[in-house]
Design a binder for these strands. Structure first.
Length: 289
DNA sequence: CATGGTCAAGTGGCA
DNA sequence: TGCCACTTGACCATG
């Protein structure tokens, strides 16, 4: 079982980060050369973060979605430093593979494959394809071992009709994305429980990521163990399923994530990798490593 | 250099 | 109606 954290290393601070980006105004003012500069810095720092992880016994990490700022709006192969960026990404991927470190990603809430709006779906495809390209450049597996995980992110009054659009739109994705795509249960009762998501799994066979925290808001009438084990059945043989774990922040909406975690979740004897979503990032899991 | 207002994008819940 | 929460806060103008 691996414990992982997401995107940002608090110990290394703001000087070592793979999340440099820019606002639209700057993108329009400085253009592709500045995108290239930031992407190269981000790619180089990813290796530093992975090295830090290995030195500290952390073998599971979620890559930032902001490695190439505005990368879903441009052809990244035209960037002035593209060769060097690709080379750095490859080095990071090689490093991860050599040390058997698991890398995943989680594109943001603007990715809505169930949307009835064509432009939303097209934007979603562009963002997912960027993630696929980056993982390809890193040389990561085309399997859910290196998952690209999203939520459905919308219901529009009818889950089944919405999920049918997911299933249709899935066919528009490249093999790079389709082979890695996973779906996660939601933290609202009106949205998708693990049981709901089985409808998508049964149609297109992509695995379900079980989020412990979200499950408490939307059980689908399954116990934690039942939902976890149902999700586990959706993963291919030989690939350790991923789960997400977080705890509620006191004083906020209960869905908000706490800085640290008090415990490691119950796995009921199953082997899973656990991505811990806590605001203190690697600091939250170090004491459990 | 610290800080606070602002920032691409979608959706649903809530005061 | 406007804010919050989710992927992951980061950017940038100002003092």
């Amino acid at each position: 079982m691996n414990l992982g954290y997401a995107c940002i290393n608090m110990t290394l601070g703001k000087k070592v980060t793979m999340s440099r980006t820019m606002v639209r105004r700057t993108f329009e003012a400085k253009g592709l050369d500045y995108v290239s500069d930031l992407a190269l810095l981000n790619a180089k720092d990813m290796i530093k973060i992975l090295e830090w992880n290995r030195m500290n016994g952390i073998m599971f990490f979620r890559a930032s979605s902001a490695i190439v700022p505005w990368g879903d709006h441009i052809d990244i192969t035209t960037l002035k430093d593209y060769k060097e960026i690709a080379d750095e990404l490859r080095k990071a991927g090689d490093y991860a593979k050599y040390w058997k470190m698991r890398i995943t990603c989680h594109p943001g809430p603007f990715n809505v494959l169930v949307s009835p709006k064509e432009n939303v779906v097209l934007n979603t495809i562009a963002d997912l394809e960027l993630h696929g390209k980056i993982f390809d450049l890193m040389g990561l597996d085309r399997s859910p071992y290196n998952k690209i995980n999203i939520h459905c992110n919308g219901v529009y009054g009818d889950k089944k009709i919405a999920m049918d659009r997911f299933i249709d739109n899935f066919k528009l994705l490249s093999d790079s994305v389709r082979s890695r795509l996973t779906i996660e249960n939601d933290d609202k009762a009106s949205m998708y429980s693990v049981k709901d998501l089985m409808y998508i799994h049964n149609a297109i066979k992509i695995p379900i990521v079980f989020d412990y925290h979200h499950h408490t808001f939307n059980t689908g009438n399954l116990s934690e163990q039942e939902a976890l084990e149902l999700a586990i059945t959706t993963w291919p043989k030989g690939i350790t399923p991923v789960t997400h774990y977080s705890e509620s922040k006191i004083g906020n909406k209960p869905q908000a994530h706490s800085d640290y975690i008090e415990r490691i979740p119950e796995t009921y004897g199953n082997i899973v990798d656990i991505m811990v979503e806590a605001k203190a990032k690697e600091l939250a899991i170090l004491k459990f490593i």
